[in-house]
Design a binder for these strands. Structure first.
Lengths: 257, 257
DNA sequence: AGCCTGGATATGTCAAGACAAATATAGATG
DNA sequence: CATCTATATTTGTCTTGACATATCCAGGCT
């Protein structure tokens, strides 16, 4: 009775999978996942509707079931689909917001259509404190690069970014740091960042911060402290950031497993 | 040269997989993932070390390679392992912090060894505003249940929780809401929550909030507004929460895919 | 009408095998 | 000595096949 909002089956538009390319370096499961996702965000598959089952899709596309399953799972992990055994796979209601990926503020701003600029406030080489040595897994007292930057969007200050990097990065290009995001600079050095652990909180802005961010004294700021690890598991960066809460927030999508 | 912190191979302790149970309802891949994870958190596999490769593990345990792969992938998704083709799989450095799962503040506090209590400040049935109707995907003006609760840990107020639920939940048990978390109450009604989308930010506490949370006027609070969907994709709850930032923060682990 | 049962449906788990692609290492070549 | 090349290693992708399990629905029984 109260189930009246349920929507019936919605087959995929037949043309959706016409351009799958088996010879492409892009994996098949990824190509399929992309098309399912775009069918949802374009509302070709309405919210609440049930999608074609795995077996049928697999046969219709001439792709094995494990590959189809993997494609669907990608979309489930993004929070756009839900699956129930014996029932099927349905489209989640609600607006789609981009999930929190391993991106930097710099990337986020660009994606939002804004123009990010960076002012390098300070750059020092300092011995690792106990806390830093612990977080970066480097010897106590070893050289570390400390950066302090002010990030603005369309000329308005958005965040104060403090970063500490291990000795491998003492020679980072100062000019590049003014023009690109830290993550872009690290990537261009061949570092591939794989895992980030971060804690998000709030506190009053310090005197420094409120001046830089053009806030009143003691105004609230959103904070994030993150440690980033590369593809061999080594700590690459320790970031302590504070954001103007009226200009920035974090979007997170969680999926129950 | 700068690679001196790399640690060599670390075989799994042979006894680690002795008690795998193929007849258990717990999936094999999950049993294996659990044991790998505990080997990491117990430091039996030191940070930076390389684990046994898939083929060897698969043969040694008499389990197919896809199943082993899935087990390892589970641990990778938690941010404890990183993989590189041609290289192997290595343990990520740094402390392990529990990731952000689809849990409630109530569950979080219990896990932290604290005693959560809930005071039901108000409970009203109100017609859905435009914003609520949009977020919950219910008709404009339809009945919705509005809750306002004060959550404390060990007697100290931690958060003010505002929740809006669709008409299906108008008859929620008031007594249960005083003694259990909202999510526990929903689960006991047979609702299984699958996806949550939330935005985390910061702002000044309102007069109400600062009084309830025993803060000064205008003190900063950490805010989260989330929409939760059940296993059929329907919106279950719209939450607007504000936390005392000295007592609570969000931990998030991100993995680059 | 109410309850049980069996079949249909769809996802969940597991296996065995094949080939592709990225990386490191050791050896051959200039 | 430096550089290129072949090879071994390891993860990434894809296929075919099988059975288990949860759910819904229709039919038959009480």
């Amino acid at each position: 009775m109260a189930e009246t909002t349920t929507v019936g089956d919605a087959p995929f538009p037949p043309e959706l999978f016409m351009d799958l390319d088996r010879s492409s370096p892009v994996p098949l499961y990824y190509q399929v996942a992309e098309r399912i996702e775009s069918a949802i965000t374009s509302h070709a598959l309405p919210a609440g509707s049930r999608i074609e089952n795995e077996i049928a899709l697999s046969e219709r596309l001439g792709i094995s079931r494990p590959t189809i399953r993997r494609a669907i799972q990608e979309v489930v992990d993004k929070g756009l689909l839900v699956r129930r055994r014996g029932i099927g796979t349905q489209v989640v209601q609600g607006q789609v917001t981009r999930g929190l990926e391993l991106t930097s503020l710099f990337d986020d701003l660009i994606r939002g259509g804004q123009v990010p600029t960076t002012e390098l406030l300070s750059r020092e080489t300092l011995p690792a404190s106990a806390a830093v040595a612990e977080a970066l897994a480097v010897p106590l007292g070893s050289d570390t690069l400390h950066l302090r930057r002010l990030r603005s969007a369309d000329g308005v200050p958005v965040a104060v970014l403090d970063n500490v990097l291990p000795a491998d990065y003492l020679d980072l290009d100062t000019a590049a740091l003014q023009n690109y995001g830290l993550y872009q600079v690290l990537r261009s050095r061949g570092t591939t960042m794989r895992v980030a652990r971060q804690r998000i909180g709030a506190r009053r802005a310090s005197a420094d911060e409120s001046e830089l961010l053009e806030l009143e004294d003691g105004a609230p700021v959103l904070t994030a402290s993150r440690t980033v690890f590369d593809d061999s598991g080594r700590a690459v960066e320790l970031g302590t950031h504070c954001y103007r809460p009226d200009l920035y927030s974090f979007d997170v999508t969680l999926v129950q497993k």
